[in-house]
Amino acid sequence: MKVLVPIKRVVDYNVKIKVNNEQTAVDLNNVKMSMNPFCEIAVEEAIRLKETGAVSEVVVVSIGSSEVVEQLRTALALGADRAIHINSFEQLDSLDVAKVLKYVVEKESPDVVILGKQAIDSDNNQTGQMLGALTGMSQATFASKVFFQDGGLHVTREVDGGLQTLALKLPAIVTTDLRLNEPRYATLPNIMKAKRKPLESLDIADVGVTPHSSLTVIKVSPPTQRKAGIKVDNVAELIDKLKNEAKVIA
């Protein structure tokens, strides 16, 4: 069985981002970049499925300039077998990304595609679902548990109010939530080995997708800051303030 894991290069989780002076974008100059945390969870899950013996090959794919090769190598060091780099200099929206991934799905015929539920830059939470619609594949988003059962996939999902378990026929799409697993770290020997693993490069024009987003960001601004209020000395004063000043309790 083959698993495909699309991954995204994003601003590192720990970076405190700033809006640029022109208020047109987030300032990405000299900022540390990493693999999107939800994509790390997706890579980890694919590798764990391979370790159970149910999966024979894990292929990772990323779209972007040559810089994304860094994240593909990271995924290879974690245990993926092979990488595909789709070269693109354009900013793609989720629909364009899904169209590119549809091409990769048709070329690779994976049994399962595992993606992060969202990227921590654009926070869209769309690509997996859109890929599902374009390919007709079934989907389970917000996965917290994934296992093969009866020739298909059983996925437990984190939904509002609790958990839901679905059975999916293969091929299927899974998007990862935080509690699916805790990703491992790459060891130095594996980082060295990853340099020799196969990495194929394609141009976005070769996959038949012309990016043409109909979305234009016209402004990016910092969020409004809440001001600190006052400190109260004791419970009685707190209750008095909530009743008589804020009027939020009776």
Binding site: S94, Q126, M130, S213, L215, V217, V220
Partner: peptide, 28 residues
Amino acid sequence: PQLSDVIAIESSDTFVRPIYAGNAIATV
């Protein structure tokens, strides 16, 4: 395309949504 998590509607084609975990607000 879809616009996710819209927090304000400025007009029939212009929408406001948080990005970067709410550390920036985009008007799209």
